[in-house]
């Protein structure tokens, strides 16, 4: 989609960059996601919330085709996942695990984010190297390019993974629990980095255990519970719904612990 097309639809709701329809996923024979219908529209920042085991990470992985779905469909930029090839439009920030990356240098990790653009056997171009240094600057790690991943703090490693996803200048950024295990100060740094991207028009889908400092840049929240969507709307509604439940005692459990909203629930 060209930029001009995006603005052409500005009259109605913007087109979804990511849409799932009736998505069901089983892991080891157990249903983990059941009939999920959700979307991220162009320029929107969506939080995927829910407790442990609610299926947040599974959903993100199924949306990107990393695990197969038993039923339903996923479309990326209007193309069915199966035939989607423009992966440079998508930036993925997986859950932080230093395992395979521990011995690599920061710039090597970030450079691997350019592979959707690069052809086999062709060395990195000046443009590729520029993209790497720009991405490192965007997350404020330009002076750690030669450091080994294992020597960085958790928050810095997370920023490296974000920089890796940014090297393609993606139109959709998907982050899986970027704040897990990151202290509050560095969560604030992450929030600043992401806020700039959202400002620049990048669509964001972010899995969060609690909103924390990232809450400020979220347009809409999708809340999962036991593999189903229990809320899909703006954050204000979510808070209002929460207070209603408390006032009337109609529902045994709130949709969401309010701690998710003000960030008092920590991991």
């Amino acid at each position: 989609m060209r930029l001009a097309d995006r603005h052409a639809t500005a009259e109605g709701p913007p087109e979804p960059v990511l849409a799932a329809e009736d998505l069901s996923v089983e892991l080891g024979g157990l249903p983990v996601l059941r009939g999920i219908t959700m979307s991220v529209r162009c320029g929107e920042a969506v939080a995927l919330l829910g407790g442990n085991g609610s299926g947040k990470s599974t959903l993100v992985r199924a949306l990107l085709g990393l695990i197969p779905a038993q039923r339903g469909s996923v479309e990326l930029f209007g193309t069915p996942l199966r035939s989607f090839r423009q992966w440079s439009k998508v930036g993925y920030v997986p859950q932080r695990s230093t395992g395979g990356l521990a011995g690599a240098k920061v710039k090597e990790v970030v450079a691997s984010g350019r592979l959707a653009h690069r052809k086999p056997f062709v060395p990195a171009s000046a443009k590729d190297r520029q993209a790497v240094s720009d991405a490192l600057r965007a997350v404020g790690l330009q002076d750690r390019a030669d450091a080994e991943m294992a020597h960085l703090s958790g928050g810095q490693q997370q920023r490296v993974l974000i920089a890796r996803a940014l090297t393609n200048a993606p139109q959709l950024l998907v982050l899986d629990e970027p704040t897990a295990g990151v202290d509050r100060e560095h969560q604030q740094v992450l929030a600043t980095v992401l806020a700039e991207l959202v400002q620049g028009g990048t669509s964001v889908l972010v899995v969060l255990h609690d909103l924390g400092p990232l809450g400020g840049l979220i347009d809409r929240a999708v809340v999962l519970r036991e593999g189903r969507v229990v809320h899909d709307g703006d954050l204000g509604e979510l808070v209002a719904a929460h207070h209603n439940h408390h006032g009337h005692h109609e529902v045994e459990e709130p949709v969401l612990d309010l701690g998710f909203l003000d960030g008092t629930v920590e991991r």
Partner: peptide
């Protein structure tokens, strides 16, 4: 390197 170090990320790069 990308495939060995972080297989899932490599897949989302279309490798």
């Amino acid at each position: 390197f990308a495939v060995c170090a972080d297989e899932e990320f490599a897949r989302v790069q279309g490798l």
